[in-house]
């Protein structure tokens, strides 16, 4: 009986050791999300929770990394206390710089690369597009200022071309009529 219990205990320990690295990782991610839930304003947390979870779902996180991210979130509590809205455009210049630095730091800890570019949309010329890449250089998320997408045509420059062709067709037709009239006059005077 004692032998059986000892073997059973050994088996349980071995199973636990094998299973631990697999099950621990979601716990690290959950700990980071909990820290964000605790320190971020509720409206901001709810606004960005799907993005955070979608990014985290694509990467693996070690305990040390999770602890560093939690420290980073805790250090940012003063920024979160001065809640002005969910968009960076609602914050002062130095607050925006702080937020960008915080995102950069968290990305660096997690082995990610945050790239900021300007929107190529004329209506959002100075707005920032955030792209996040993993350590293999693959894009894992992209946030642009236009959450509502342009869904009219795949190529946005098509509209003015329409009118150009209409005008061109009219000019060519007028030219053809004029040339036909001149040609008719030639024929009449033969």
């Amino acid at each position: 009986m004692k032998k059986f219990v000892a073997v059973l205990a050994l088996c349980l320990i071995m199973v636990g050791m094998v299973a631990m690295p697999v099950s621990a990782e979601p716990m690290h991610k959950e700990a980071m999300i909990e820290a964000a839930r605790e320190h971020m304003p509720d409206a901001m947390f709810k606004e960005y929770l799907p993005l955070i979870e979608n990014v985290l779902s694509q990467i693996s996180v070690e305990k040390e990394q999770a602890d560093q991210v939690i420290d980073c979130i805790e250090e940012s509590r003063d920024f979160f206390k001065e809640y002005k809205g969910n968009s960076l455009s609602e914050y002062e210049h130095h607050e925006r710089e702080f937020a960008v630095e915080m995102v950069d730091r968290i990305c660096e800890i997690l082995g990610l690369n945050a790239v900021y570019t300007h929107s190529d949309d004329p209506e959002h010329h100075n707005d920032v597009v955030l792209e996040i890449y993993n350590d293999a250089g693959q894009k894992i998320a992209e946030m642009d200022p236009d959450a509502v997408k342009k869904t009219n045509v795949p190529e946005t420059a098509a509209a003015p071309v329409n009118y150009t062709y209409v005008v061109l067709a009219a000019v060519l037709l007028l030219g053809a009529v004029a040339a036909a009239l001149v040609s008719k006059k030639f024929a009449a005077e033969r």
Binding site: V161, N162, Y165, V166, L168, A169, A170, L172, L173, G175, A176, V177, A179, A180, V182, S183, F186
Partner: peptide
């Protein structure tokens, strides 16, 4: 002048097809 209307009408037709 006798031939000119033909390419012009042809060009106008192409524009119309594009539109």
């Amino acid at each position: 002048f006798l031939l000119l209307p033909f390419p012009l009408v042809f060009g106008a037709l192409i524009c119309a097809v594009v539109v």
